[in-house]
Every structure is written in C-alpha cells, then in structure tokens.
C-alpha cells in the first residue's frame, strides 16, 4: 500500500500539468486531425463525412497553398540567417573591452529594445514608419534613393520583403542575448592560447568563437525557424497577407480559410501541415539537445 502511494507521488505533482496539457493541447490536436480527414465539419447542416486523405490532396495541389508555403519558408530562412548575423555581430560588439561598463550597459538596453515590444505594437509602429508619407520614405528621398513615395506594405513586390525586414528587426535580440551569455562563457585563456599560436582575429573567430557557440547557434536557429513559421500577428496586422496574397504565409492562409471562408476541413488540413513541419524541426531540435547534454 505504502509502495503504491509512493509511486503516485511524482504523478500527483505532475497532475495539474498533465490535465491541462491533455485537455487544452492533446484533445485539440486529435480533433484537428479528425477534422482534416472529414468533410462538413463545425458549421453545417449535413453530418460530417469521412473522406480520407482527399483534403490533403486538395490542399497540396492548391497553388495558393503552395505559394503560402514558399513564403513561410522564405520568411523563416531569411529571418534565421539575418537574426544570426545581427545577433552575433551585436553580441560581439557589446562584448569588446574597448568601451566602459556603463556605456556597454546603455548600448545593451538600446539593442534589446525591439524585443520589448509585442508583435501588434511592432506592426503598428512599422505601419507608421513605412507609411507612404512616413519618415522612412522621407529619409530615402532626402538621400536621393527614392524619388516617389514607396508603398512598402501595399505593393506586391515589396510586401513580403518588408514583412521579412520587420521580423528581422523584431527578432534579433533573442539571439544577441543568448550569444552574449555564450561569449561570456568562453574563457579568455583560449584566446590567449590562440594568440600565442599566432592566430589573427579572423582565425580566433573561426576556430574558437564559432565552435564554442555552436550548440547555442543550432538550438537558436531551430527554435527561431519553428517560431517564425508560427508567426501570425505581425503579418496579420501589417499586410494581412496581402496585397493579393503577396505576403500570405501558412498561418494567415489557415486563419482566412477557417474564419473568413469557413472551410474548416481544409483549414484543419493546412493546420496539420504546419504541425508536421514544426514537428520535423522539433524532432531534430530535441535530438540535438540530447547530443549536447550527453
């Protein structure tokens, strides 16, 4: 009796977590999977009907879906690469011994600023900045780059690049902060030893800094890839996926399919595709963590 009670203790501590996550996460996932195999779900007078994988066939041959998929991958890859470069560059700048600790602290706060703002605030801020009559166009025409007001968010060519830029601005501090902590963990002795062996700045970076940061780089890149493929608010509130799908990503595509076209079965199918994409990356992420911890 006592033994059984003892075995139940860890589950007692886990029970709130398990109940919450099963009701609000496992059940919805099971439901959305079920919906993706059915027709006529949620709002309909006809009973739901099992259709197998035909929703998947329909979605995967839909040009608009493929386009949204491509945009999502472009957005995610461009963001990950730019976040990495900016994050590492800023972290290294902040890690130099050239500036004093107080100046350093001030710069660090300024560099972290974009991260303090939520996506909806970032969206309205950049809508103000990138407005055709806004300050960005004023500066660009002032230095002679542009002679007519540029429609950053409302033109088909520029909407996606603009959204990518905004996402880059919003997301690099997370990398920077992690790299800062990582850089501070690299012992000065390593650099001293490298210098004695005659290594220059580039070689020190290439053979000491990068390899030492590698575990952080890999986890950050994968996490960021997953998060960016989930990004909804920023796109929804800047371009809404438009104009004419020019900046449509999987999350806005799914949202519109569900909540403006009421195609819940098809929306569930695209939701499953996004889940699959995230799960694949997450699988490698977890495996990478395991390897790093062992």
């Amino acid at each position: 009796m006592l033994k059984i009670r003892k075995q139940l203790v860890p589950f007692a501590y886990l029970s709130p977590t398990l109940i919450l996550l099963s009701v609000l996460s496992l059940i919805p996932i099971a439901t959305v999977f079920y919906y993706s195999l059915m027709d006529n779900v949620i709002i309909t007078n006809v009973p739901p009907q099992f259709v197998g994988l035909s929703n998947y066939q329909e979605i995967l041959s839909d040009q608009n879906f493929i386009q949204a998929f491509e945009h999502t991958i472009i957005l995610a890859l461009a963001s990950v690469i730019a976040h990495f470069i900016l994050g590492l560059a800023f972290a290294m700048l902040l890690n130099t011994k050239i500036i004093g600790p107080i100046t350093k602290a001030l710069f660090r706060v300024v560099y972290i600023l974009p991260w303090v703002f939520t996506a909806s605030i970032i969206a309205v801020l950049w809508r103000l900045l990138l407005n055709p009559n806004g300050v960005v166009n004023f500066v660009l025409s002032g230095i002679g780059v542009a002679n007519a007001p540029i429609e950053w968010l409302a033109s088909r060519q520029l909407a996606l690049p603009s959204v990518i830029f905004i996402n880059i601005w919003a997301g690099y501090p997370f990398y920077m902060v992690s790299f800062l902590a990582g850089l501070q963990g690299i012992s000065d002795d390593l650099y001293e030893a490298g210098k004695i062996d005659g290594a220059g700045t580039v070689a020190l970076f290439r053979y000491i800094t990068l390899p030492m940061l590698r575990p952080i780089i890999v986890s950050l890149a994968m996490l960021d890839f997953i998060w960016t493929t989930h990004q909804f608010t920023l796109i929804w509130m800047t371009t809404g996926g438009g104009p004419v799908r020019a900046s449509e990503v999987l999350s806005t595509f799914t949202y519109k399919l569900a909540f403006s076209s009421y195609e819940f079965s098809l929306a569930s199918t695209t939701a499953m595709v996004i889940l699959a994409l995230s799960t694949v990356v997450a699988f490698f992420y977890v495996r990478n963590q395991r390897l790093a911890n062992e």
Binding site: H230, A258, A267, A271
Partner: peptide, 13 residues
Amino acid sequence: GVQSVPPITLMIP
C-alpha cells in the same frame, strides 16, 4: 513537444 505546436493548429477546434 507541446512547445512546438503551432498556435494556429490548436485554433480551429
């Protein structure tokens, strides 16, 4: 794994 579940996937149900 729950960390990597897309919010939009949970949204519909």
